[in-house]
Design a protein around this nucleic acid. Structure first.
Lengths: 252, 252
DNA sequence: GGGCCCCAAACTGCATGCAATTGGAGCGAT
DNA sequence: ATCGCTCCAATTGCATGCAGTTTGGGGCCC
């Protein structure tokens, strides 16, 4: 049951994809912290490919929001703002409610077993590092998405889950993984019972609690970019080199 | 108010992005039909860049699901299956409900005016081609997403809307755009009133009706890939060269 | 006439090379 | 010491070249 085939679009199993996967994993396991530099040369050398390939991989990851690409500058691991992190979680909640809505009562016994096995693995990993726990928890959600057999849903859930993973490494306090594991079990149970409303509520609460527990302080601004902080003030500066921000409603 | 700045991630305003935008537009306006071939050489020559750049652009569009990349084969405009189209609409409904939920009662007068102006433009374009009408309707939704000021939400709504746009060209009958325009006006009104529940319901109904109206026949299979059509039959073929499908629950 | 094979053209996968840009070290002036 | 300037190594942006793969069509045999 391992090795689910990737969708025909993107991830063509060539060298670019290999590097993408490696970097993605390094990022979500926090081996590469937000803000870490990713020079094309270094990547190419490390993975034994040319700069062209490394560059292409960075482009893909940028499209996923995991790295930031600035013209003529070294690419860096993305450093989402607190608001972006919250936005990502909001989107994730809706997407994953959709996942469990589609899955409720539709899972085979072997699929339930697979889910339980994954949570068991999460349980066993409790003694390990936070990074591994977070990765496993994320993969549980992606596993669920895979079971919808909707490539689009898989892609979006994966992406947004990775982004959330990334933000956890920025804003999270050392959080307990136990309750998350219990919530995973509860979700599996509700899915098996086919209790659509309940499982949607469970998923909603699960993600929301992870988000609110993790995204505590509105402004730790650890590695935050000065440019972000000063952006609101730039309006009053009269220079055509200042980045123009579109005027928009910032919801509460 | 035009020229909303693109997010710092992806769309770096270099040559690759230019080509991406051009192709994206060509695809959603059906100048390039699903299945159309996109050789790197031809693209490069057409846009006055090298194959490297054209290739990179194709990679980005593949990540968005607008083109399909097969190893050692010419890239083609994506040809989503009917099920994928339905999945895209389901996701879109959830995302856009989130958009209007965040926006209800939070829009400034000038933003309301901008939305109305856009719908006016849709109205004026009723006499034109279907392609333009569809593009404008799509851009209305993307305009809404922009107003949330959430780059992530903008990206996902844009992507999924483009994908839906693409599927419309595959499975849609010549549909009337009038009711869609009226529904857009109703949504604006509900947003201005700040009626959150109502606007979510309106958006849901709007998209759902577009989807069900458009995705009528489960199998028009115009330019559909034989491989997709025959996939269910491949199970009975005993050969290790047959593409293995993971066994999953296909929800009703 | 129809099926098969083989080969050339077309195309992709990837590496390398060159020009342009950046950012930071070094250094002198304040 | 701090600021500002200059210059060079590091790095990106992009084009080109080469090798391997796919395509499709002509010729050959049945």
């Amino acid at each position: 049951m391992a090795g689910r085939a990737s969708s025909k679009t993107s991830e063509s199993s060539d060298k670019v994809s290999v590097i993408c996967r490696a970097l993605r994993r390094a990022i979500i396991e926090q081996a590469l912290e937000p803000g870490a530099k990713l020079p094309e040369d270094a990547l190419g050398e490390r993975f034994g490919v040319s700069r062209t390939i490394a560059r292409h991989a960075l482009g893909q990851l940028a499209a996923e929001g995991l790295v930031e690409l600035r013209r003529n500058r070294i690419a860096v691991v993305a450093t989402p703002s607190w608001q972006e992190a919250r936005d990502a979680f909001d989107i994730r909640i809706e997407l994953e409610r959709l996942v469990v809505r589609q899955l409720a009562g539709k899972l085979s016994k072997s699929q339930i077993a697979e889910l339980n096995a994954h949570v068991d693995a999460e349980d066993r990993a409790r003694g390990g590092t936070d990074a591994v726990s977070i990765r496993l928890a994320t993969e549980f959600h992606i596993l669920l998405a895979h079971m919808t057999n909707s490539p689009i849903l898989v892609r979006y859930v994966s992406e947004v889950a990775y982004r959330c993973c990334l933000t956890l490494s920025l804003y999270s306090r050392p959080h307990s993984t136990e309750c998350a594991i219990n919530e995973h079990r509860a979700i599996i149970a509700a899915l098996a019972r086919g209790d659509e409303a309940k499982v949607m509520e469970l998923m909603h609460h699960h993600l929301d609690s992870v988000a609110t527990r993790a995204l505590v302080a509105p402004a730790p601004q650890r590695g935050r970019d000065l440019l972000d902080i000063l952006a609101p003030y730039a309006d009053e500066v009269t220079s055509d080199r200042v980045v123009k921000l579109p005027k928009v409603a910032r919801r509460g």
